[in-house]
């Protein structure tokens, strides 16, 4: 009964969309990388770096959108490093990705300690505030859930639409998808597989960093260690769950976030009082694994995912 009450409350769905936003952004980023044939395990660290960079920029006096741009540029920098090692040099995407995650995370923490050596609790910034879209936000339930979010969330939804249009309706998208399916065909067309893949990884990494920045600039207003807390790995699972399609991945992110929002609320009900809180915290991770088991059999994996392409090699 209590659970039903939660599920029909508008504030619950508003929270679900808020929790979904960083996942949506980073999942789109990973999806673009993987569609071009590159697994980017740098995602977790790039989100940490983006969370710090955006917040730090605003803390040092820039505007909020400039902060978002700074986060994106920092993410693209790590994307450049990742793509340089995995695309032209064709190094193991697993190893490079984990290396980039370690490098991005540790350099973020290093920079944090250098920038704020004395502080015990990190300073707050004036974060993005909810903006109620006129008329639409008056719709019952839906209005509060979807149209009373911060502009950063609206940007995330717009980016899903843009990614989808780019992938399926433009020559560029065709080239990106082909680079992940049959790079030799792309090369035969006179296009550079290297350039397409590197571009996809760099742009995708920018999206991941924006996902991280949402945490410090919209969901919260401060930077904490461990704040990304495995969200990047969840996004890797969401790409598989969404079968490498933007719309399905968006749906997966919202479902996951709804489940996450639900476990937080059930913890506070009478039902949650008798169960150790760790069980609730585990539930989203277990759900991700179960979801993967259900979809993996019929997943349409890009054929050339994780296959390096070396021109002249047949």
């Amino acid at each position: 009964m209590e659970i039903l009450d939660i599920l029909i409350s508008a504030s619950f769905w508003a929270a679900a969309i808020r929790i979904a936003t960083p996942l949506i952004l980073a999942t789109m980023g990973e999806l673009i990388c993987e569609r071009a044939g590159v697994l980017n395990l740098g995602i977790e660290g790039i989100m940490v770096a983006g969370a710090f960079a955006g917040w730090m920029a605003v803390y040092s006096g820039t505007g909020l959108w400039v902060g978002v741009a700074v986060a994106m540029v920092v993410g693209m920098g790590f994307g450049l490093l990742h793509s340089l090692l995995t695309v032209p040099f064709g190094l193991s995407q697993h190893v490079v990705g984990l290396g980039v995650t370690l490098l991005a995370t540790s350099s973020t923490y290093y920079a944090y300690r250098l920038a704020l050596p004395q502080v015990t609790s990190p300073p707050k910034i004036a974060a993005f505030q909810p903006y109620e879209i006129p008329i639409l936000s008056d719709i019952p339930l839906l209005g509060q859930a979807l149209f009373s979010q911060t502009p950063f969330t609206y940007l995330a939804f717009a980016l899903v639409a843009a990614t989808s249009i780019m992938l399926y309706r433009t020559p560029l998208g065709l080239a990106v998808r082909a680079a992940g399916e049959s790079p030799a065909a792309v090369a035969a067309q006179g296009l550079s597989v290297t350039a397409i893949r590197m571009g996809a990884v760099i742009v995708g990494s920018g999206f991941m960093a924006m996902g991280g920045a949402f945490l410090t600039m919209s969901a919260f207003d401060s930077f904490f260690f461990e704040m990304v807390n495995g969200r990047g790995w969840i996004c890797i699972a969401l790409v598989v769950f969404g079968s490498w399609k933007p719309g399905k991945a968006l749906l997966g992110a919202v479902l996951f976030a709804a489940f996450d929002a639900l476990q937080i609320r059930v913890q506070q009900t009478s039902l949650g009082a008798d169960i150790p809180y760790q069980i609730f915290l585990m539930a989203p991770y277990i759900l991700s694994i179960v979801a993967l088991v259900l979809v993996s059999r019929r997943a349409e994996v890009p054929a050339a995912l994780m296959v390096p392409f070396n021109k002249g090699e047949r």
């Binding site: 697993h94 585990m282 991770y285 277990i286």
Partner: peptide
């Protein structure tokens, strides 16, 4: 089931520590 082990082993770290 063809589930990628990278994701499952990574998520297991979080589950098992909890």
């Amino acid at each position: 089931f063809g589930v990628d082990e990278v994701v499952t082993t990574l998520l297991f770290n979080f589950i098992f520590l909890l």
